[in-house]
Amino acid sequence: MKELERKRKGEGEGREAAPESYNTVTKLIAGPFAKEVAQIWPGPRLGEYLTATDTRRHVWHLWFSSRRMSFRPDNPMSTELAYAQLTFGRSKDLITQATGSQPAGLIRALGRLGPKARPARVYRALATILATDGPGAKFIRHAAVLPDDLILGLATLPPGLEAKSVLRLFQKGRLPPYALGYFTWSLARLEKLMGSSAAQSIVAARNPLEAIRDAILDLPFPDPPWPGNSLLRPVTARDRLKKVGDDFENCLRGFHRERQSVLTVINGVEYLYEWCGHEPALLLFQRVGSIGWFLKEARGRKNAEVSDETRAEILKSLASASSLCPVWDLGEEVWHSDGFFQEHVIFSGM
């Protein structure tokens, strides 16, 4: 009995040493999985983890990353079961447990991740890419190095879309990895809408990502909520929006603000109207579902406030448009009860 107590005490001392290892070597190599490693390989066992091959350690990291596993590092029984499973289990079996399949090339790819652990989402992304077996998988199998941003970027590639031209752009350093999925899908959609020549021009551009953004922003504006009249004229194109910004000398002249405004218009969220009365003004309407549009902002040249007389004229003109709310200052208290539109101050300036 005394011998058993001494043995248990020795095991306890071994586990008490884990936090020290966790704070130094374990944290350096195991990174986000340092807690799990310190619990499964405490004290003298830590050498088993540290002396394992990079490939084997990354198989363990993949196992930790999986949402399929129910390992609990704070439960001694779960820890002992995990130790036996990870120590004696075949890498292929552990991968099957972690991913539910055997993605071709996964073990080899794990062996090229280097000595240190990667974030959990990188392991999940790598397994997903290779399980999908699309263009991203082929790229992974032939890549000499596998940085995190590349793996995460390849994981965003939409399945079923041609990505060879996009991946060539990335290989040449002309496209960042985070934009791979967005660029591939957008290019396919623009090619369908505008033709292959438009897509080829984007790919051939000096900055393809900037070119595809411009192509999207140059899409036609949707029909205005109200056709307007001789005094109230909708801004129906990007070129006209730029011209209005220059004429009014307001923030629409700014590169980012102009782009943001165009995007909100083509997304059907906002619409701009020019007031062509004695005192010119620019009106910004925001959509309220299928009900209509309310006046969010109205300013004159250089963001100046408009006079009371012009306000009255604008409201009179709006009264003939059923889809436009003929109220000058809705006030955020209208939506205060549920917080809806609480962030908008109707006459806050443009």
Rank of each mutant, 00 (worst) to 15 (best):
V59I: 10
L318K: 02
H344F: 12
G181A: 07
L330I: 09
D239I: 09
W226I: 03
E258C: 11
S261V: 14
F294K: 00
G254N: 15
E5D: 15
R45D: 15
P177Q: 01
Y83K: 14
R168L: 09
V166K: 15
L175D: 09
R67M: 07
R108K: 05
I40S: 05
K92L: 05
V122H: 02
K35C: 14
L150A: 04
G31L: 08
L231M: 11
V145I: 08
C276T: 14
V25L: 15
D218G: 07
P147M: 11
R301L: 09
W63S: 10
A82W: 08
W328A: 09
L28A: 13
K164W: 12
S201M: 01
P227W: 05
R67Y: 07
I291C: 04
G268L: 07
V235L: 11
P42W: 15
K172R: 06
S196K: 14
T128V: 02
G349M: 07
G10R: 13
W41D: 11
P19W: 06
G331A: 03
C251H: 12
D338W: 11
T132L: 02
N267V: 00
A125F: 09
K92P: 00
P103E: 03
R141T: 00
P227G: 04
T51D: 08
V145G: 05
V345N: 15
S65T: 15
H278F: 13
T51M: 06
L169P: 00
Q260G: 10
L126M: 00
T156M: 03
S70V: 12
K2Y: 09
D223W: 02
Q342F: 12
W293G: 01
R67E: 07
R108Y: 04
I95Y: 04
K243I: 07
P220T: 11
P135I: 12
G181Q: 05
S21I: 10
D223T: 14
A204H: 07
R233N: 06
R238V: 04
E297Q: 13
I314R: 01
H336G: 06
V59S: 04
L86V: 08
K243N: 08
E11N: 15
L217P: 00
F221L: 12
A143F: 01
N75M: 10
P224V: 12
E305R: 11
R15W: 05
V327K: 04
G153Y: 02
R141Y: 01
W60H: 09
V235N: 11
P103H: 07
P326N: 03
P227K: 07
W41Q: 13
